[in-house]
């Protein structure tokens, strides 16, 4: 089904009704969704118990946050707005016993992909706040700056992970807010950085990553927005023993991210949040997506597809990965 603003606002209307009803009928204690952000072309999470606040809920091509991240820290029964990738993270959290399915009411959003404003900024040579309007009709994105108007294709402006998304319509939901959408199916266009890296020698790849992580601030935004990183105490905060220096320096920065990726293997759903939030533009998805593909290639495992599957690292087959062992 192709995207239209009208269909989208239908969906938004339905969401507001559903969310309000859920609170009114006492079916949930709170709603987690999106409301307009305080910046242009942005939204912000709305976590509320207030019926009236449901009027502020939005669905648009800028609902970037993976809201499942809040689930392990939120008490009570929760009504949560979930795009495809978010629903996979929710499923993964259910598999990991981090949330109970019966405590959730999943308001599923059949997603048509999200617009990466930083790509738009680069394309039109303007900053976010200088861009007057970004709108989508069908597969065309129209960007207005003053009187100038430019059109772009999906593969130019959608988030890389959206281009490669395999499950835009949640498989796990209580109500689906619109008609199912199909994947954009432009994985190849989203793999620029990965391909670039694959063409390098091993030494070049390592040097590349060493250089990238020199500017890591160790703000841990990548970890803290990641639904798969829910540890009460992360290994970076351990002091006995101290696994790595708790300061922003190489090679500890790189080591942190290596371990983080190894820890979220089989739970990362390629939601893209870590890369999006990194304040210093480290191309983190080139790591997370690589891991995503490795897990798929070795064990035909895709995280968060259904609640029945056993989590990757708690399961095994007797005859697998045998060439590993010598």
């Amino acid at each position: 089904m192709s995207y239209s603003a009208a269909k989208n606002s239908q969906m938004q209307k339905k969401l507001r009704q559903e969310a309000k009803a859920l609170l009114e009928q006492g079916k949930v204690d709170c709603i987690i969704g999106y409301e307009p952000g305080s910046l242009k072309h942005a939204t912000t999470p709305l976590i509320t118990k207030d019926k009236a606040a449901t009027e502020r809920l939005v669905i648009n091509p800028f609902i970037v946050n993976n809201l499942s991240n809040f689930l392990p820290y939120t008490k009570g029964r929760i009504g949560i707005v979930a795009k495809g990738c978010d629903s996979r993270s929710i499923v993964s959290l259910i598999q990991d016993n981090k949330v109970k399915r019966e405590d959730l009411f999943i308001l599923g959003v059949p997603c048509s992909g999200l617009i990466d404003v930083s790509k738009v900024e680069a394309l039109v040579g303007k900053y976010r706040d200088e861009i007057d309007d970004i709108s989508r009709q069908g597969d065309i994105i129209t960007v207005k700056v003053g009187a100038a108007k430019k059109e772009f294709s999906l593969s130019q402006v959608m988030f890389d992970n959206c281009l490669a998304c395999e499950l835009p319509t949640p498989a796990e939901y209580d109500v689906l807010l619109g008609e199912p959408t199909s994947p954009i199916g432009a994985a190849a266009e989203s793999a620029g950085k990965l391909d670039e890296l694959k063409a390098m020698t091993a030494a070049q790849r390592w040097a590349f990553w060493q250089n990238e992580f020199r500017r890591c601030t160790r703000c841990y935004a990548c970890r803290n927005v990641c639904p798969a990183c829910y540890c009460k105490r992360c290994f970076v905060d351990e002091t006995e023993p101290q696994w790595l220096a708790p300061m922003p320096q190489e090679p500890d920065n790189l080591m942190f991210q290596i371990i983080r990726n190894l820890h979220v293997s089989g739970r990362c759903t390629d939601c893209g949040e870590c890369e999006r939030t990194c304040p210093v533009n480290i191309p983190l998805r080139a790591l997370t997506r690589d891991m995503y593909d490795i897990v798929d290639e070795l064990f035909e495992f895709k995280s968060g597809m259904d609640t029945k599957t056993q989590p990757l690292l708690t399961a095994y087959e007797v005859d697998e990965a045998e060439d590993l062992v010598k």
């Binding site: 190894l262 089989g266 490795i294 590993l324």
Partner: peptide, 13 residues
């Protein structure tokens, strides 16, 4: 271990 090795290889190890 299979995952670890493959991932490290991808990074250049």
């Amino acid at each position: 271990l299979a995952i670890t090795r493959k991932f490290l290889e991808g990074m250049g190890v």
